[in-house]
Design a protein around this nucleic acid. Structure first.
Lengths: 193, 193
DNA sequence: ACAAGATTGTACTGATAGGTACAAGTGATC
DNA sequence: GATCACTTGTACCTATCAGTACAATCTTGT
C-alpha cells in the first residue's frame, strides 16, 4: 500500500473533475475551478496529473468510458433480453444525465475546437455506443440496416434531448423525448422479434 | 450618411464574429481570435461593441434570430402548404448547419455556464422554433398535443444530429437522421390531413 | 521513533486574457 | 482646404491564466 494511495486519490478526484468540466466546458474550467471542485490544491492536481488539464480531461474521459462500458455498452453487447436491455439503458441514461440537467462531456467536447485533442476518444465513445445498441437490436431480429439506423437515431436523440432540456431549462422535455425514443426501439423489437 | 456607416460595418462584422464563436465557443473565442476573424482591430471592435464580448455575442444572437425568423420561423407561422413548408425547413436547416459541420451557436451556449448570461435568448430561440413548427403541423390537422410532441422531437433531433455528426466527423449521419425526422413529420401530415 | 518517500500548500513565473486610453488617420460637409 | 465627428491601430492596464518550484507536512515500513 505504498504507491497505491496516489492512484486511489487520483481516481477519487475524477468525479469532481468531470463535474467541473461538465459545468464550465474544457476551456472554461480554470485550474482554480478544478482545484475548488476537487478540494485539492494545485500541487496535488499536478502531482496526480503532471500533464495538466489535458491529462485531467483524458483521465475523466477514460473514467466516463469505463462507467459506460460497464453500465451501458456491455449489457447491450452481451444481451439476452433485448427489450429489457433497451429499457434498462434508457433508465440508466436518464439517471446519469439527470434528465438533461447534466451535460454530456463527450458530446460537448466534439462541438468546439478546444476538444480536437480528444477527437479519437469522442468518436470511439459514440461509435461504440451506437454499434452496441445496434447489436442489441439485431439480436432481437431487427434487420441490420434498420438496427443501425435506429441506434444512430436513438443516441443522436439523447444528445439532442440534453441540448434542448438545458436550453429550455425543462427536465420534462428530456423525459418526453427520451421516452419516445425508447418506444420507437421497443416497437421495432416487438415487430421484428 | 454620417452615423449610418458605423451600423453598417457593425452589421457586416457579425457573420465573421458568429463563425468565430461557433468555432471556439464563447469562452474560447479570445479577442485576438475575434479580431483576426473580422479583420478589425481591437479599437474597431470596442468602437462597435462597447460592451465587449457580451455585446458581440448578443448582437450575433440577434442576427441569427433575425435570420431564423425570416427563413425558418415566419414560413412555418404563416403556412399555407404544411408539407412543403416542412420540406423547405429541413432543406434550409441542412444548408445552414452545413450538414452538421457547422455547430449551432445557440444550442452550444445553453450547454455550459458561460452561456447563462444569454439564457433568455437561448430559451426564446428554441421555444419559438418549436411552437412555429407545431403550429405548422396543426394547420395540417395534426392534433395539438401530437403536433407539439413531434415539433419538440424534430428540433431536439436536429440538435442531436449536429452533436453526433461533429463527434463522428460524418456528414452523412446528419443527413440520415434529419431525413428520418422529415419523414416522420410528413407521415404525420399525410395521415392527419 | 525514525528515516524515506509521497503529498500538499504557497509563492512564484511568463504569457495572455479582456478592456481602456488616446493620438493619428479618414472622409464628408461647408 | 479647414473643420468636425467618426474610425482605427497601438500601447498600455490589471487580472488571471496554466504551469513550476519547493519547503513544509504528512504516511508508512521498519
Amino acid at each position: 500500500m505504498s504507491t497505491k494511495r496516489a492512484l486511489t486519490d487520483r481516481e477519487s478526484a475524477l468525479p469532481a473533475l468531470a463535474e467541473a468540466f461538465r459545468e464550465h466546458g474544457f476551456e472554461g474550467a480554470t485550474l482554480a475551478a478544478l482545484s475548488k471542485a476537487t478540494g485539492l490544491g494545485k500541487g496535488s492536481l499536478y502531482n496526480f496529473f503532471p500533464g495538466g488539464k489535458d491529462e485531467m480531461m483524458k483521465a475523466v474521459l477514460e473514467n466516463i468510458d469505463g462507467w459506460f462500458a460497464d453500465a451501458i455498452f456491455s449489457p447491450l453487447e452481451n444481451v439476452s433480453d433485448p427489450a429489457a436491455a433497451v429499457t434498462a439503458m434508457f433508465d440508466d441514461v436518464t439517471a446519469y444525465f439527470r434528465s438533461g440537467r447534466r451535460v454530456c462531456v463527450v458530446g460537448c467536447l466534439g462541438l468546439n475546437s478546444s476538444g480536437e485533442t480528444f477527437a479519437v476518444e469522442v468518436k470511439d465513445y459514440f461509435a461504440r455506443w451506437i454499434s452496441a445498441l445496434a447489436h442489441c437490436l439485431e439480436v432481437a431480429k431487427v434487420p441490420p440496416a434498420m438496427a443501425m439506423d435506429l441506434a444512430e437515431e436513438a443516441i443522436s436523440g439523447i444528445q439532442g434531448a440534453i441540448v434542448l432540456a438545458r436550453a429550455l431549462s425543462d427536465d420534462t422535455s428530456f423525459q418526453r423525448i427520451v421516452h419516445r425514443l425508447q418506444s420507437t426501439l421497443l416497437d421495432a423489437i416487438g415487430r421484428c422479434g
